[in-house]
Simulated assay, not measured.
Amino acid sequence: MKRDYYEVLGVSKSSSVDEIKKAYRKIAKENHPDVKPGDKQAEERFKEATEAYAVLSDPDKKAKYDQYGHSGVDFNGQGFGGFGDFSDFADFGLGDVFEMFFGGGMGGGSRRKGPVKGADLRYDLSITLHEAAFGMKKQIEVPVSVYCTECGGSGAAPGTNPTTCSQCGGTGQIRATQRTPFGQIATTKTCVACGGKGTMISSPCSKCNGKGKVKEVKKIEVNIPAGTEDGLSLRYSGYGEAGERGGPSGDLYVVLLVKKDEFFQRNGNDIYVEIPITFVQAALGDEIDVPTLHGDVKIKIPEGTQTSKVFRVKGMGVPYRRGSGCGDQHVRVIVATPTKLTERQKELLSEFGKITTEGQQLGKKSLWDKVKDNVRDAIG
């Protein structure tokens, strides 16, 4: 003969839903098969308490039980059987059993109830090539949500507390069962009354309007490492959005975007530049000043230098982010053609052209010079 359900849980008819749930959880935790494996008495107490809770936690079934006793909630002898029959669990609304012991529940209710980490944030920070090369510290301001200090994140006005939602009993979900030719199927949906939170706020906090969070601008010092590449992401743990239900804050990812330089071009840790030189400098040679990220350096231009000649300046590139040393700078010289010549300059250049060979002017042998050399070689 079945015991009275109120006696099984140790509650009275006037007990609230929360009191019934609390009593059931205590018995279920103490007697669950995972806690006391092989203990038949504990298993029977667990099944008995689960059956009692399924009835007394449901307002309709509780009313029928109070009026008609066990006959009012007859389950056609199905009982609570083993854990493999999910239609039984759906029928009796036992998602809480799974939530307590297996961390899942019917429809993922525990994930909604437990702490949830806040969302991560991304901040794009533009920096110059010089800042990327040598590193520096920069302060940025990031708008982020934080727990309200007035209510401690509860959303309720100071001196008050959120109350358990009467519609879902604090689960944040409304469960229902549907009969099909294949048995009963359990369905869940977010509780409309509380928005899935499981609690209601009658007196919302005036500072956060009951949200439990407020927007705040955080000042963060970003340490840009020397040798930074374009797109490098720096992670700042805990500087993202505030979590849910006491969960930790998310992370902030600062993405460094290196702006294009109008003079220097970067390839890895090497720097490339183009420097114009005069016709006279190219022909006679010279020593010129060349700007680098590290400051001006002098390079020697040999006489007869041709346009697009590349000179390498060792160690004047971008510092290596890992390890010591720097890349190189590659200097391409471009011979500039003089313009707006005076009559005297034209006269001198014309004279110069008459007394120099084509090979001298072009910096290489002319086609006719090559033909003559080939004929000379063939004759012997």
Rank of each mutant, 00 (worst) to 15 (best):
Lys2Gln: 13
Ser12Arg: 09
Lys21His: 08
Lys29Pro: 00
Pro37Asn: 01
Arg45Lys: 09
Tyr53Gln: 04
Leu56Phe: 02
Ser71Val: 02
Asp74Cys: 15
Asp74Arg: 15
Gly81Trp: 02
Phe83Lys: 09
Asp91Trp: 05
Phe102Met: 06
Gly114Glu: 11
Tyr123Asn: 12
Ile127Cys: 13
His130Ser: 15
Ala132Glu: 14
Ala132Thr: 06
Ile140Ala: 01
Val146Leu: 06
Tyr147Thr: 10
Gly159Asp: 02
Asn161Tyr: 14
Asn161Met: 07
Gly169Met: 03
Gly170Asn: 02
Gly170Ala: 05
Thr171Pro: 09
Phe182Asn: 12
Phe182Cys: 05
Lys189Asp: 13
Thr190Val: 15
Lys197Asn: 15
Cys205Asn: 06
Lys211Pro: 02
Gly212Met: 04
Val214Glu: 05
Val217Glu: 11
Val222Gln: 05
Val222Ser: 11
Tyr253Arg: 06
Leu257Gly: 00
Asp261Val: 00
Asp261Cys: 03
Gln265Glu: 11
Gly268Tyr: 09
Asp270Gly: 08
Glu274His: 14
Val297Trp: 11
Lys298Asp: 05
Ile299Phe: 14
Ser324Gln: 07
Gly327Ala: 07
Gly327Asn: 07
Gly327Glu: 09
Pro338Asp: 13
Arg344His: 07
Leu349Tyr: 02
Ile355Asn: 00
Gly359Asn: 13
Gly363Val: 04
Lys364Met: 03
Lys364Asp: 10
Lys370Met: 08
